[in-house]
Design a binder for these strands. Structure first.
Length: 466
RNA sequence: GGCUGGGUGGCAGAGUGGCUAUGCACCGGAUUGCAAAUCCGUGUACCUCGGUUCGACUCCGGGCCCAGCCUCCA
C-alpha cells in the first residue's frame, strides 16, 4: 500500500484518499517572470512522478492534478516595467517557455493549470469570507490583512510558535498591521499598477490567497495532497492553511508533500550566489532525459547536489539501460498487453509505495536490464518480455520511452551525419573482412575523435555518441 | 536564537537490528583480430562518544559537523 511522508504530521502514513475515484492533488507552480531553473525542474519532475504513480495505483481517470500559475505579483510587475512590456505579454512568454521546458523533460500536463488573474472573483470571495468571519481586516492604508492570532493552529505545519516567529522576525514593523506577523490578502493599487475592483477598492491579491482560492475552486474545500518546494512550507503553505480553513471552516489538504532543494557545492542554488542554471542552459549540454534521470536518482525530500559530474554519471547510467533494450524488437501485439509482473515489478512497486523511493526503483531497473543482457541471445523471447516489463516500469518514472537507437545516437558531438557514419562503418567492415586491421582501426579512431563509439556485435556494427 | 532535515565505500546514492543495494569509476578473468558492449568475479563503507541488546551502520541519549527555513523563493 502506498505510504507518503506527510509534512504536517511529520510521519510516513498510509495514503487513503477521500474519494478513491477522484484523488485530488494541488501543487504550487511557478511565478512566471523568468525562465525555469533546475529547481523548478525538480518540482516539475517530482510531482510528475507522483501523478504518474497515483494514476497507476488509482486508475488513469481517477486522479485530478492541478498546478497553478502565478501571473501577477511584484516581481512580474517589476520585470514588465524593466522591459517596457505589458504584463500579459510577459507572462505569456514565460508560460510558453515553461511549457517547452516541461515537455522536454517528459512532464505530463496537469489536468488544469489555473492562473491567478483568471480567478479574481474566487480570490475576492474568499477574502470577503475571511473578513466576514473576522479572520481579516482592512487596515488604514487600504490593504487587507489576515489576523494571524485569530487562527488557533497557526504554525502547525512549519512547527513554529507565534512568539518564536515574532522574536525571529527581521521585518520592520509595518504600521498598518496589527501584528507584525499578519500577512497581506489584498494590496491596494499604487498608481500605474495593474488592479482589479474589489469591496476594498482597486488593488490586487497577495500571493498566498491565490493558491487558497484556486485550489479550493478546482478541487473543493477539502482534498488529498498539496505539494510544493520545501521553502514554501513557511510562510506560504502555513498561510494557505490559515486562509482556507478560516474561510471554509473545513479541513484543507490532508497530506502535505515538500520536495528538497537543488544545491550547488552544498549550497542552495540562488541567483544571488551566481550559481544558477536554467533548464534550457542545461539542455544545451545534456539530453533532457539525462536531467530527468538525475533528478530522480535521489529521494525527493533530500537535497539534490547539481554538477556536471553527476549529469555525466546519469548519462552513463541511462546509456547502460538503453543499451540493454537496444536491438530488441518489441512485438507490438505483445507489448500492448499488460506487462509481465515478475518479482522485479513487485519490488519496484514496493519501492514506489514507500514514499516514492525513486532511487531504489531505479536500482531495480538495472537489475532488470542485467537480466535482459544475460538472456538476450539464449532466450530472446524471455528477454523481450523483460524488456517490455522494464519499459513499462520505467514509464512510471517517465524514463526509457524512446527508441534506444534514437537515444544512443542523439546529440551533435562531432561534425558527422548519421549517413556519413554509416558509410565509414561500411568501409571499416570491408577493411576488417580484408584483414586490413590498421585501416579499420584508423577509421574507428577517427570516429572516436568525433565522439562516435563503434560496437561490433554478432549481427553487425552499431554506433552511438558518447 | 528558534524550527526542519542530514552525516554510508573513490564519487553519487538506497536500505536494514545479525544475510549482495544500485549506478559510475577502479582491478582481475571470459569474450573480441584489437577494442567497445556484455558476462563472471574481487576490493574499498556506514561522523564521534556513551547506552540498550546475545548482536547496531540500523534503536536511545550527548557531542561535533553540514544544509535549509524563520524575508520574495520550487
Amino acid at each position: 500500500m502506498l505510504e507518503i511522508y506527510n509534512s504536517l504530521t511529520k510521519k510516513t502514513q498510509p495514503f487513503r484518499p477521500l474519494d478513491e475515484n477522484n484523488v485530488r492533488i494541488y501543487v504550487c507552480g511557478m511565478t512566471v517572470y523568468d525562465y525555469c531553473h533546475i529547481g523548478h525542474a525538480r518540482v516539475l519532475v517530482v510531482f510528475d512522478v507522483v501523478y504518474r504513480y497515483l494514476t497507476h495505483v488509482f486508475g488513469a481517470d481517477h486522479v485530478t492534478y492541478i498546478r497553478n500559475i502565478t501571473d501577477i505579483d511584484d516581481k512580474i510587475i517589476a520585470r514588465a516595467n524593466e522591459r517596457g512590456v505589458n504584463i500579459t505579454d510577459l507572462t505569456n512568454e514565460f508560460i510558453d517557455a515553461m511549457n517547452v521546458d516541461a515537455e522536454a523533460l517528459g512532464v505530463i500536463s496537469p489536468n488544469e493549470e489555473p492562473r491567478a488573474t483568471a480567478h479574481m472573483q474566487q480570490i475576492i470571495d474568499m477574502i470577503q469570507a475571511l473578513v466576514d468571519k473576522e479572520f481579516a481586516y482592512q487596515a488604514e492604508n487600504g490593504d487587507v490583512y489576515y489576523a494571524v492570532s485569530k487562527f488557533e493552529t497557526y504554525g502547525q505545519l512549519s512547527g513554529r510558535q507565534l512568539d518564536d516567529l515574532r522574536a525571529g522576525a527581521r521585518v520592520e514593523v509595518d504600521e498598518a498591521k496589527r501584528d507584525p506577523l499578519d500577512f497581506v490578502l489584498w494590496k491596494s493599487a499604487k498608481p500605474d499598477e495593474p488592479h482589479w475592483d474589489s469591496p476594498w477598492g482597486k488593488g490586487r491579491p497577495g500571493w498566498h490567497i491565490e493558491c487558497s482560492a484556486m485550489s479550493t475552486h478546482c478541487l473543493g474545500n477539502h482534498f488529498d495532497i498539496h505539494g510544493g518546494g520545501m521553502d514554501l512550507k513557511f510562510p506560504h503553505h502555513e498561510n494557505e492553511i490559515a486562509q482556507s480553513c478560516g474561510a471554509t471552516g473545513e479541513a484543507f489538504a490532508n497530506v502535505w508533500m515538500h520536495n528538497g532543494f537543488v544545491q550547488i557545492d552544498n549550497e542552495k542554488m540562488a541567483k544571488s550566489l551566481g550559481n544558477f542554471f536554467t533548464i534550457r542552459e542545461v539542455l544545451e549540454q545534456y539530453d533532457p532525459e539525462v536531467l530527468r534521470y538525475f533528478i530522480l536518482s535521489s529521494h525527493y525530500r533530500g537535497p539534490l547536489n547539481y554538477s556536471n559530474v553527476h549529469l555525466d554519471n546519469a548519462k552513463n547510467a541511462l546509456t547502460t539501460l538503453y543499451t540493454a533494450i537496444r536491438g530488441i524488437n518489441i512485438d507490438e501485439s505483445v507489448s500492448s498487453k499488460p506487462a509481465m509482473q515478475s518479482e522485479f515489478s513487485t519490488r519496484f512497486f514496493a519501492a514506489m509505495d514507500n514514499d516514492f523511493a525513486t532511487s531504489e526503483a531505479q536500482a531495480i531497473l538495472f537489475e532488470l536490464a542485467h537480466e535482459i543482457n544475460k538472456l538476450k541471445s539464449s532466450q530472446p523471447d524471455v528477454a523481450m518480455n523483460y524488456a517490455i516489463e522494464l519499459k513499462s516500469l520505467a514509464k512510471l518514472l517517465g524514463l526509457l520511452q524512446r527508441d534506444a537507437e534514437e537515444f544512443l545516437q542523439a546529440g551533435q558531438s562531432g561534425e558527422l551525419s548519421a549517413d556519413e557514419i554509416e558509410q565509414k562503418i561500411v568501409q571499416r567492415n570491408q577493411a576488417r573482412a580484408d584483414k586490413d586491421f590498421s585501416l579499420s582501426d584508423n577509421i574507428r579512431d577517427e570516429l572516436l575523435e568525433q565522439g562516435i563509439v563503434l560496437e561490433d556485435g554478432s549481427d553487425g556494427t552499431t554506433w552511438r555518441r558518447e
